[in-house]
Design a binder for these strands. Structure first.
Lengths: 354, 354
DNA sequence: AGCAGCGACTAGAGCGCGCTAGAAGTACGG
DNA sequence: CCGTACTTCTAGCGCGCTCTAGTCGCTGCT
């Protein structure tokens, strides 16, 4: 590592001592009006003449004044801030966050992001969000148990994205997992697959439903003897591990339904490491359609969830619940749709049907 | 879309009306002590007996009290909050953020995240961060011009990650782009490549240095006639576009140095769409070694930047600058190292050397 | 002339907390 | 008995802002 000192002393525009942050009072004093008036101007409220408005803004600019959100939050009855919990490793969450920002802005809300991490569990993230006066929480793919979410929902409007939450007081938005899984199984069976394994998403959002849907679909198609669920979760690592498990077996399945896209990525990593071709030897289906899935290096067949719509609904639900605290909790279920790309094909030795 | 009403009225633990958030005064009243004492307890400061400490904590628990960060920030002289600007689409930023959280916690700082987006430019993100009383800023891969960063740095400790910033008062942390690029070019030339194109990162962080290093390396190796730089930026789209440009030409280059990993991904997308094999027909090198690069579906040869170390240095720089405002600005340059994976190979028809 | 109505502005009380100065209680030595 | 030291606790101001309830001067209407 190399270190370059700049040599020169840090020179601010405002002299050597880093000036204390200017406040509303400073602006007011400079213009010769009351603080309240400056407040009006910055909140874009009526009650100030066009001329004073300009003078205030000019003075603020000169002083480098910037409204202090902490104080604003404190003083306001409403904070107009939505807290969003994300898994920063999850590309699908990135899609959601972008849409959340957009919708929140449209409705006049600010967004505070807090990410999960190795040393930051869901409770810590939520604490942090709540500590910053978020009025409502939007949790992307939480793993927490229903009881905890219910408790949260009891005192803070809470919206869960990606999973069903039976708890009262908590809205949930997710796709129709059963439809998505059913389409995936149908697709594979249509291609001629029978040995179709499912890698479970553990306690990840939507996993229980996906597992159930997988089992139901297999049974419906007369493949109950082929049902096989491998433990896993929604990370690349679990996909890789499941892949290794499969590779250790005598016979590989011809197709795998991963718990989500990330899991599918890990799985393909393991398979390709072992020289197993996708889709020549094994077909793989993901779940999410995160924006990396369509990159053709990956080109993953997956179940599409509409991030933009989910995000919009999440924000709107939170806001509606904020406007009327006594709303009954809702469960919004969006359609899921299989997107067929390049990781699925007829099993080896199977004459293409029709 | 289906909507399920829960039917039952939202039932909180605390009755039907969503109780106002309890404050320190509520806790104090319940225990029968002063607010100041409760404050002591929650700040873990000496001055309260073990017994009262417990009573206070118990009462807080019962009331569901949670310290209000907005008020805390306002009252405290120091806020102990670091603001971090990220591009949520960038997997390398995810790596950085995780490490930033860890290091910040170690040093007793909180972290506030704010993401760039289609409708959120860098200035907006910075405003938002500053408005929430962040004491210092860590900007991951900013595009903003130096003058703006200098202005920022003049009144707020600012650390830029991923790019050189000549501005006084701004620390910058980046890798030795010249070394990284040089290694990449050496590697390709060693494999027998001569027609090596570089896709530029536009005004993205580090791009200017990478471009310069590419040119220098090519010249040094006697390949000045093969120098070719395609415009681009640090997104998948730009890689795809550059790929299309190349595909439109009479002759493809045998190797491409992308501006970063995302650009490389887009490029490979375009190539593979056109039936061009990587690395059989074209070798591709990325830059970042974000955690998706090593997934073997991608298996990208790339220049590794040590996210953890960069993040740690960023946080420490910010904190040191916070402790002593008059520190000269520094530029920390980390080593870069080429990681050879599966997207580079000898050009077609080239007998492997030695 | 009298007064309601309006636009432009201000005084001042909070919001929930941190923090300084100091009070009250206990302990000990002289 | 007082002085000193220490622990445990409290009073109350201030952080930068919002917001309610005004004041003030002016117009327009009866």
């Amino acid at each position: 590592m190399v270190e370059h000192g700049a040599g020169a002393e840090s020179s601010g525009g405002s002299g050597s001592a880093r000036a204390k942050r200017p406040t509303m009072a400073d602006v007011a004093a400079r213009v010769g009006v009351s603080r309240a008036l400056v407040s009006l101007v910055f909140r874009n409220e009526p009650g100030a003449s066009k001329e004073t408005r300009e003078r205030v803004l000019r003075a603020a600019e000169e002083l480098g004044y910037r409204p202090d959100n902490a104080a604003r939050l404190l003083a306001r009855t409403r904070s107009m801030v939505l807290g969003v919990m994300i898994n920063i490793r999850n590309a699908f969450h990135a899609d959601l966050v972008e849409a959340i920002y957009a919708e929140a802005e449209r409705l006049g809300y600010e967004v505070l992001l807090s990410a999960l991490g190795p040393a930051r569990n869901e409770r810590r993230v939520v604490e942090s969000l709540l500590g910053h006066r978020c009025e409502a929480l939007i949790l992307l793919g939480p793993n927490a148990e229903d009881a905890y979410l219910a408790e949260l929902g009891a005192h803070t409007p809470t919206v869960v994205v990606g999973r069903r939450v039976p708890a009262n007081g908590v809205d949930s938005i997710h796709t129709a997992e059963n439809k998505g899984m059913r389409q995936a199984v149908d697709h594979l069976v249509g291609l001629g697959h029978r040995a179709i394994v499912h890698i479970d998403g553990g306690d990840g959002p939507g996993s229980a439903e996906r597992r159930r849907a997988y089992r139901a679909a297999m049974r419906d198609l007369g493949l109950q003897d082929e049902i096989r669920v491998l433990p896993g979760d929604h990370t690349e690592e679990s996909g890789e591990k499941a892949g290794d498990t499969l590779l250790g077996d005598a016979r590989l399945p011809t197709a795998v339904l991963a718990g989500n896209d990330r899991c599918a990525m890990g799985l393909m990593h393991a398979l390709s490491r072992a020289g197993v071709g996708v889709p020549q030897d094994v077909s793989v289906v993901g779940y999410d359609d995160s924006h990396i899935a369509h990159l053709s290096r990956i080109n993953l067949t997956t179940v599409r969830q509409d991030a933009e719509q989910m995000a919009q609904l999440a924000v709107r639900s939170a806001v509606e619940r904020l406007d009327d605290h006594r709303l009954p909790s809702r469960e919004l279920i969006l359609d899921a749709r299989l997107v067929v790309r390049g990781t699925t094909a007829p099993p080896r030795g199977h004459a293409s049907a029709l």
